[in-house]
Amino acid sequence: MTLLVIGDSGIARAITVAMRAGDRSVATVTDTAVFEKRDTAAAALAAAIDGAAITTVVFAHLDPSGFRTAAITELTEPAWDTACERSLRHAFVALQQVHALVADGTPIVLVLPNVGAVGVAGLVPLCSAVEGIRVMAKAMARRWGARGITVNTIEVELAAFILGDLGAEGAGTAVPEVPVLGSPALAPGSAVADVVGLIDLLASPEGRAVTGAFLMADRGTVMLP
């Protein structure tokens, strides 16, 4: 019984480490360039799974170029594509191919940063991609419910998405400051432990009626109306 984690974000890596630390079998696809085409995506996913039964799928990927702060007027068309549209394309291709591979009843959980519902200046491509993927997941939830497949989205703080549990110095990756999102209501903790707990809940029998949902696991930073 294997959990499949897709993506090369810090949170994807950290979820993999945390799950393996709990003696779970985890298959990963971290080379997201395979999602440029459907056939390479299908091959990469099949190779990662290697015939194992998949219990849960976690998709936690956005193109890292989206994390660079820039005014939209400064972007070239290729820069817009990599910062926004590539992430949307990859999500579609990856999840389409996941659907072809998994058994009925498999839960799918997307993990994204909490920027799309609020909007952040300088991160327009990223916010666009996140919202597009989040609602793409809802459409998938509606379509795949007949197979018992649930599709839900968890959103975490941007730094947690980029870094996982690493400090900025450890990852060597710049994290944009987003004061507009506000401060967390809860004390600092492990974003990875928090999101792993929610993934387990959504994948458990207790979570079987939850699909198309959007759960904030950002310690009360963004509280939507």
Partner: peptide, 13 residues
């Protein structure tokens, strides 16, 4: 659905 949602994220940001 996805492209129209992307527009909403675009608007906010």
């Amino acid at each position: 659905s996805a492209v129209k949602a992307a527009q909403r994220g675009f608007v906010r940001a």
